[in-house]
Nucleic acid binder design. Structure first.
Lengths: 203, 203
DNA sequence: CTGCACACTGGCCATACGGCCAAACCGTAG
DNA sequence: CTACGGTTTGGCCGTATGGCCAGTGTGCAG
């Protein structure tokens, strides 16, 4: 173990990252169905076999793209959510975190959406709840009851409310993917308002 | 022109309908990517060539599936929207119409979502706003300003509000596609409330 | 220098796809 | 009965995909 070719580390990690990046770009631009290994390899300027060498198969590559993207989204969202002290502030942080992620990593987002929409098991049935990550939903769903107990929020079904919010956010996300000129900040503001009005306890 | 084989009508229409139905079932069950002409034909109990005979190609078949599904959705939604007289009633009718369609034709819906999500031009870019039909969005967006002028609704951006509502509905739809046990009526009720609270003018 | 393990290339393979067609089928018209 | 047009079959074609492998390069260890 000396300087350059050190297997389990430098080259391996760098190549994998490069391939994942190329996959993200390719999926975002041409869609999941048109993102073949050949196209991904060509964009990366490498041979097709390199992908087979560093990844067990296309499945593992896609799984890596997905987890990388979700980690990135989590990193954008969590701080903004936890920054809030009240339930309403956290709800707003949740939306703003999504907006921030979409603005910062639009192609990562597009790749995530594409993969989730096309993720299926051998039989053919969808494996993941399309375009919604259960993590964020649960986090909002957990925050809402607290606000209700404190008396900050009115009574409603927290899970359904959280799913509705995620649905509205996913809608924004899908719309942005199809129309990059969308004013995300305005959209996010317009999106938060109804849920604030809907969840807060009227004075 | 006598009894049985009358070309431009009976067999032609019946076969096309049968093939479209088989395509809907196949897409709903296995996803767009796995819905090959061979699989669609096999499910319909016919030869692959029959599809080529009655449709110009896979594109035309998919377009037919899409328009059929959207027409069906329109038929479920329009009456419920127009039944309302106030903007809030129409907003509620819009959601209830969606719920009714999802409950009545879940597989049609799944096929619509799959096709829209995978619809791309030759270059590879998405052609339709993913999982949202501009028609319904426009209809809500048109109804909202009226309610604002009458003084029924408070001031907000009608288009963004309409898109947020559609996003929330699409979220419900996507969630139902992945989890058929979802209580759609409860979800719809929970979904309408925030937008009612958010749009109505506080007394 | 030699051996070796890692990294990579280029191409081959089996498979599946959409499109297409020659031939067969079949009810009706003449 | 024969001719005919609409309909269907089964199979063939070119293409693209994911996976795979024999061979090659390269830098370090011994």
């Amino acid at each position: 173990m000396a300087s350059v070719q050190r297997s389990g580390s430098f080259i391996e990690a760098a190549r994998r990252a490069q391939i994942v990046d190329s996959a993200i770009e390719t999926i975002a631009e041409f869609g999941y169905a048109n993102a073949s290994l050949a196209r991904i390899a060509r964009r990366a300027g490498i041979s097709k076999g390199v992908i087979s060498y560093h990844f067990a198969g296309k499945d593992e590559l896609m799984r890596q793209v997905l987890t990388d993207g979700l980690d990135l989204a989590e990193a954008q969202m969590l701080p903004r959510i936890l920054a809030g002290t009240t339930a309403l502030e956290r709800l707003r942080g949740h939306v703003e975190g999504n907006v921030a992620f979409v603005k910062a990593y639009p192609r990562h987002l597009a790749a995530i959406v594409e993969i989730l929409a096309n993720a299926r098991d051998e039989a053919g049935k969808a494996t993941v709840e399309a375009s919604s990550f259960t993590g964020p939903v649960d986090r909002v769903a957990d925050a809402l009851p607290v606000g209700q107990e404190v008396g900050e929020l009115r009574e409603f079904d927290p899970l359904l409310m959280a799913q509705s919010l995620r649905g509205a956010i996913d809608g924004m996300v899908a719309r942005f993917a199809a129309n990059p000129d969308l004013d995300l900040d305005a959209y996010g503001r317009e999106l938060v308002t109804p849920f604030e009005l809907a969840t807060r306890k009227p004075d």
